[in-house]
Each structure stands twice: as structure tokens, then as C-alpha cells.
């Protein structure tokens, strides 16, 4: 565990908590893509199956359980509890265009042709594109509440910090996970345009992010 990895995990946790509390306290999921949140719940489910097969550390187990519980709780808030506020007409990204290629690629390019390993690979590939329905929704409506942009900032920052963690681990331990690193680079690239808008607009005091 290095400082980049720890800050990455904290950033990930902060992002998920921001989104959950935003929906819970405002009793509304307006502007939030339910599709992206279902994809993230699927990411955690398929990645953390090793909770049942191997123990790594208390930290590892607790974080995995927290991510799983919060992701399903968020999906519950969007699709059941505050369903009336869900903007399904703006959440029109076709997720099958992500799921089919990602599933196909995880069968072709993995470390071991076993169910748990293919599902882990699937989760890594899927995570790299799971935010696209949310970004698509913001592009379509042309705006996002600032609290939603804080969520996106921490979610993007998390994988960028993991990139630094992988550089660190490569130099200190010789650790190199090609699938995670390539996907992590792709994932971070998707956030670059958003990072630019976040710094130039939201951090300058605008109450909302509006697209030009």
C-alpha cells in the first residue's frame, strides 16, 4: 500500500458517498444516469467474487463490502425509492453497445480462462466505460449540478491516482498488471475533457456545469 493507492481508494469512496448522500438527502436522482450506476454495481459484483475464495486483508474485505453495499443502495434509491425523479428520457445510452464488446473482449484477452478470472477481467474492462451513460446524459441535457460534478471529479481522480500507484509499484515491486493498467489509462482519458470543464467552470464558482 502506497500513498497513491490509499488516496485513490479514499477518492473512490468519497465519490460513491457523495452520490449516495446527494440522492438520499435531496430525495431526487435528477441528472443521474441510473444506467451507469447499474453498470458500477455489476462491476463490483463481478470483481469481488474473490471475497468468497481468498482473503487478502481486513482493509481489502471491508472496502469491497462497502463498495458493493453502497452501489446497490444507490441503484435502489434511483430505481425504487426515488424512481419518480429518475430522468429516464435523458438516460438513453445503449448499454448493450458497452456490454457486448466488453464481454467478448474479456473472453479473448484475460490472464486465465476460468469463470472467476474472466469475470474479473470483464469488471476491469466494464469499469473503464461504465461512466459513459452518465457523461452522455450530461452532454444531452447540457448541464450538471455542481454536486454531480464533484462526484465525477473524485471518481475520475481515483483511477488517475491508481495510475500513479501502478508506476510506483512497477518501480518498487516490479508489479505490472497489463489488463488493469491499459483499462485504467482508457478510463482516465474519458475524464480528461470533464476535468478541464470542472477546473475552468465549477471551481471558478459556477453553481452548475453548463456546456458551451
Amino acid at each position: 500500500m502506497n500513498v497513491f493507492r490509499l488516496l485513490g481508494d479514499v477518492s473512490h469512496l468519497v465519490a460513491i458517498i457523495i452520490l449516495f448522500l446527494k440522492i438520499f438527502r435531496s430525495k431526487s436522482c435528477a441528472g443521474i444516469s441510473g444506467k451507469s450506476q447499474v453498470l458500477f454495481a455489476l462491476v463490483f459484483t463481478t470483481r469481488y467474487l474473490d471475497l468468497f475464495t481468498s482473503f487478502i486483508s481486513i482493509y481489502n474485505t471491508v472496502m469491497k463490502v462497502v463498495f458493493l453495499v453502497l452501489s446497490y443502495a444507490t441503484v435502489y434509491l434511483i430505481y425504487l425509492r426515488f424512481r419518480s425523479s429518475y430522468d429516464s428520457e435523458s438516460d438513453t445510452f445503449r448499454v448493450e453497445f458497452l456490454l457486448v464488446p466488453v464481454a467478448g473482449l474479456s473472453f479473448l484477452e484475460n490472464y486465465d480462462f476460468t469463470p472467476i478470472e474472466i469475470l474479473w477481467t470483464f469488471s476491469i474492462y466494464l469499469e473503464s466505460v461504465a461512466i459513459l451513460p452518465q457523461l452522455f446524459m450530461i452532454t444531452k441535457t447540457g448541464e450538471a449540478e455542481s454536486i454531480t460534478t464533484h462526484y465525477l471529479f473524485f471518481l475520475g481522480l481515483y483511477r488517475a491516482l491508481y495510475l500513479a500507484n501502478w508506476v510506483w509499484r512497477y518501480h518498487t515491486e516490479g508489479f505490472f498488471d497489463q489488463i488493469a493498467v491499459v483499462s485504467g489509462v482508457v478510463q482516465t482519458i474519458f475524464y480528461c475533457d470533464f476535468f478541464y470543464l470542472y477546473v475552468t467552470k465549477v471551481l471558478k464558482g459556477n453553481s452548475k456545469l453548463t456546456l458551451p
Binding site: 486465465d112 474479473w120 498488471d177 488493469a180
Partner: peptide
């Protein structure tokens, strides 16, 4: 082995 790569990460 490679298949254990990344499993200590989240």
C-alpha cells in the same frame, strides 16, 4: 502467476 495480478487492489 499472472492470474493473481491486481487482486490485492480494489
Amino acid at each position: 502467476s499472472d492470474s493473481q495480478n491486481g487482486k490485492d487492489e480494489l
